[in-house]
């Protein structure tokens, strides 16, 4: 499963929740602070790294305040059995 993260421009966010409704892994929450406009912005709360970087949140965001990244899958590290560690 792909993994990713989002960055929310919290000053631009109006806390409308459309991204929360759209988020499949349900990893978006309201912040515990208000932004300068008085809105409680959305933040990514994803301790288990369930965000897939699917970008549905950004797709529905009316304020264009979400940037989405997806992790580049890394080749599994080869383990060289028996190699001495210097």
């Amino acid at each position: 499963m792909a993994t990713g993260r989002i960055v929310v421009d919290v000053e631009r966010c109006k806390g409308c929740d459309l991204c929360r409704d759209a988020c499949p892994p349900d990893v978006l929450r309201h912040a515990d602070f208000l932004n300068a406009k008085g809105y409680r912005p959305i933040i990514l709360l994803d301790p288990k790294h369930k965000c897939t970087g699917c970008a549905l949140c950004a797709t529905v965001c009316p304020d264009g305040c979400i940037t989405v990244f997806r992790d580049i899958p890394q080749p599994k590290e080869k383990i060289h059995h028996g190699a001495a560690i210097a």
């Binding site: 990713g4 929740d17 965001c61 989405v68």
Partner: peptide
């Protein structure tokens, strides 16, 4: 590092904050 950008705000969209109400799809 080890990430790629999937979605970013389009360049043609000005940086100014809109006056639209929260959730108004004008912004979309």
């Amino acid at each position: 590092e080890n990430e790629r950008l999937v979605y970013a705000r389009p360049r043609t969209l000005a940086s100014r904050y809109t006056h639209y109400c929260p959730g108004c799809t004008h912004g979309t």
